[in-house]
Nucleic acid binder design. Structure first.
Lengths: 198, 198
DNA sequence: CAGGGATGTTTACAGTGTCAACTGAGAAGG
DNA sequence: CCTTCTCAGTTGACACTGTAAACATCCCTG
């Protein structure tokens, strides 16, 4: 057993919580969701199987922390894509960024949304998730009159989210999937943006 | 332990495969996804833990069979909703039906799409899934000129699928969720249908 | 220099998916 | 009719998971 060497390696590990989240994240992205086990995360952090319970109530709680990291990354990504002067264009770019994020980090994306691993109850939307939502909502708000705004925001969000899910899970017809996902995302969101009521 | 009584109860169970799928489905819908375990399905069918392996390669294979049942139900539901004379209206009704299906049977919906429990690889889209897709695609095809048709079909599919996912997982903002899901679905898909290029 | 609270460790348990080897029943062939 | 073969189901075992309870150890505060 040796830790990452640049770390403190004190034997009250220092910052286990962060180490666990980092380990969990790389487990998830390098080996898929079924490799992300509480024990594996503990092992990766060089610590006993029960240690994580000092920092997380249970496995779902660790996953929530991982997801939160994902939300922050997604929000950054959307913000970085939101640069075009034309608001319609900016909206399209956000949509493309959303889909690409899902495609590049599919396992993380599936943890962020969906199922919350356990009870079927709503998994308590974390604050960071809302801020990603806000970036998209702001663009839509600038394009749609007050009374249709809410439906339009939900529609935009649904559209990119649905496209991301279907693409990630390989659910699109081969012909649709043949073109690069980016092209497809651009066409789809473009079509949507064009149809928005002025 | 007693079987469903109307069944044969012969000692080479008769039709274990179907019994397992049925048991799995009710486990799933009555007690959530974490209750759907291979052993529990076997128990429910009155059979030993290893018996399912004579009919399914592994757990994922059972889940695939359950999902297939779900696809068939969804297709029926879409077909039944597709009755309006106005094609735009029919499209909206299909979207609403899709969202309601997801909301009424959330666990099944999550099994049908998403993750395929195991490798992150695409889970081999079953034939029945395509036929549900076809019902929606047909309506869109009647509304959109040839060259934009493909993008429009993907967009419609994405929109309702995304809305279904977000609703099921309780990801919508409270205000959006306050109205009945059906109303929301109607507004959102209506807005989309209205924006479609003539 | 106490001692107390946070942080980790050990041990244990119920449950899971799945492998290997065994058994029983119904059909096939002499 | 009796043997035999093969499919369908069983038993037992294994490695692994998440988690509870009790114990150990470090560091900080008084």
């Amino acid at each position: 057993m040796f830790t990452v060497s640049t770390e403190k390696a004190a034997y009250h590990h220092g910052n286990l919580r962060d180490a666990l989240v980092r380990t969990a994240l790389s487990l998830l992205e390098e080996s898929g969701v079924e490799a992300l086990t509480l024990r594996a995360a503990a092992r990766g952090a060089g610590v006993s199987a029960m240690a994580p319970y000092r920092h997380f109530a249970d496995k779902a709680d660790l996953l929530a922390a991982v997801a939160e990291q994902g939300y922050a990354d997604l929000r950054d990504r959307l913000a970085r894509a939101d640069t075009a002067a034309d608001p319609r264009q900016a909206l399209v770019e956000q949509g493309v960024a959303y889909v690409l994020f899902a495609l590049e980090r599919p396992a993380l994306f599936r943890i962020m949304f969906g199922a919350s691993l356990g009870s079927g109850l709503p998994p308590k939307p974390p604050p960071t998730a809302g801020s990603a939502y806000g970036i998209l909502a702001a663009r839509v708000a600038g394009l749609v009159p007050e009374e249709k705004r809410e439906a339009a925001v939900v529609a935009a969000w649904s559209l990119v989210h649905g496209l991301a899910c279907l693409t990630v899970d390989g659910r699109l017809t081969p012909q649709a999937d043949a073109a690069s996902p980016e092209t497809l995302a651009r066409q789809v969101t473009g079509l949507f943006a064009a149809g928005l009521p002025a």
